[in-house]
Amino acid sequence: MSAPAQPFPHRRQFLLGLGLLSQTGAGPRLRIVTVLGDSITAGLGLPARDAMPAQLQAALARRGVSVVVRAAGVSGDTSGGGLARVGFSVANDTAVCVVALGGNDLLQGVDPALTKANLRGVLRKLKARGIGAVLVGVAAPSTIGAAYAREFNAIYPSLAREFGVPLYANILLGVNGDPALLQRDGIHPNAAGAKRIAEALAPVVARALKA
């Protein structure tokens, strides 16, 4: 009498093949860049595809750096608001967080010492979680008061040195004052302005990802 036939003689090999197929089909997991900021990074007045985070992802891709850029900008947010929400706005799978806060502090005349303390708190929280950072500043014009502008503008390079993180000193560099790159309010970048910011910021973020 012959032995009964096995219902699935190559079951182990079949399951192994499925496992390998699923792994190869999934591909490598892309790293995450989160942009923590205010209305400029939130893309106020723009569709999401034209806002700075999406433009940054495209600019990095053109440099051969494949990432997913998450937008975590809130219109009107100050450095204090960013500090309050960094724990839940920046997910744990973030490789690098672009910290772009301070513009609303400047508009509201917040004490630069307080702005610096808040940004230091943000950077400390990111460091404690093992998340890299890029610090993005905003330039204070001397017309608001030379002493205030000097103290405010010193915040960003000082913190960049303290934490050893890359610095992009002025988010609106090359955009501010150019009607072709701004919306009608004369403050927020249009799609072309957001692209200009993203192109300038991309190499700084790329270096942070390598680090």
Rank of each mutant, 00 (worst) to 15 (best):
V68I: 13
N92M: 10
G43Y: 05
R63N: 07
N104S: 11
G81N: 10
D105K: 03
G103Y: 05
L123N: 05
N118P: 06
M52F: 01
Q57V: 01
K127D: 15
V122Q: 11
V67S: 00
V65C: 07
P47R: 01
G130F: 10
A48Y: 01
A72H: 03
G130T: 10
F88Q: 12
V67Y: 02
D50N: 04
A100E: 14
R63Q: 15
V68F: 05
D50T: 04
L107C: 10
K116Q: 15
G132M: 03
A71M: 02
K116E: 15
A100T: 02
A133Q: 06
N92L: 13
D111A: 15
R85C: 11
A91W: 06
A128H: 05
V65Y: 00
N92P: 07
S79L: 05
V69K: 00
I131P: 09
A59K: 01
L44A: 09
L107W: 05
A61S: 08
G130N: 08
D77Y: 08
V67M: 01
R129L: 11
K125G: 15
A61V: 01
Q108R: 15
Q108N: 14
L60N: 00
D77M: 07
A133G: 08
S89I: 02
V74Y: 07
G102M: 02
R124T: 15
G109K: 04
